[in-house]
């Protein structure tokens, strides 16, 4: 369970918060237009930014003040940020400790199979398409067994067909992951397809926070033609 209480952050003239919400073993979608503060909120949870006030607790453990590398959170950015000097295999196993042979455990193979990316392992990063790169980024994160999954508009830079295909795969991934997921998007269709809960941000303020019914009502009210 991730609990965010009274979280605030000022960046220049922009003020985020106060933000309060809880996420159990479900997918929370953070929805809002560009500049609403979605990425800022995600970066605060990830530890990329430190809050000015408030707290972030995961299973009772305070995360604020904990270095990024000790938060046990997985982060998928808008762009894959695969390490270009490493192969696909090298990228996938980057976060694992051990010899090249020992890191290829059954858990790693399960992730590769879940994402149907066995054919990518022996390819070079530079030769992959955008969708393939995001899959590798996802695998790279999931093999480290994070306790929390954070995704910042991971499908934004992809073409329509790839986005649709990967969106379907993400549903399976989240189901298999089983832990709290926070998914940032400005696309209402993605929110409805993937979310169990919703947090709507506008100019840094929480406008709506609720479950599935609130998500559907929100999308119907604000985003339908």
């Amino acid at each position: 369970m991730l609990v965010v209480q009274g979280l605030r952050k000022r960046i220049g003239k922009f003020q985020l918060g106060p933000v309060d919400f809880q996420v159990g073993n479900e997918v929370m979608v953070i929805l809002g237009e560009n500049g609403a503060g979605k990425t800022t909120l995600l970066n605060l949870i990830a530890g990329i930014l430190e809050p000015d006030a408030g707290s972030i607790l995961q299973d009772g453990r305070r995360l604020d003040g904990v270095p990024i590398e000790r938060r046990k959170a997985g982060f998928i950015f808008q762009r894959p940020y695969l390490f270009p000097h490493m192969s696909v295999r090298g990228n996938v196993t980057y976060g694992l400790r051990g010899s090249p042979e020992s890191v290829w455990s059954s858990e790693v193979r399960d992730v590769v199979s879940l994402l149907d990316m066995g054919g990518l392992l022996d390819r070079e990063v530079g030769g992959l398409s955008g969708g393939e790169q995001q899959k590798v980024a996802l695998a790279r994160t999931l093999v480290t067994s994070p306790q929390l999954l954070l995704l910042d508009e991971p499908l934004t830079s992809l073409d329509f067909r790839t986005r649709r295909r990967l969106k379907a795969e993400l549903k399976d991934v989240f189901r298999a992951f089983g832990g709290p997921v926070i998914y940032v998007t400005h696309e209402p269709e993605e929110a409805v397809a993937l979310g169990d809960r919703v947090l709507l941000l506008e100019d840094g303020k929480v406008i709506v926070e609720g479950g599935r019914s609130e998500l559907e009502a929100l999308v119907q009210e604000r985003y339908s033609d």
Binding site: A46, I48, P67, I68, E69, R70, R71, K72, A73, G74, F75, F77, Y81, F83, Y94, G95, A137, R140, T141, T144
Partner: peptide, 8 residues
Amino acid sequence: YASRMLGR
């Protein structure tokens, strides 16, 4: 940040 999110 990607590297650090992976525990490094």
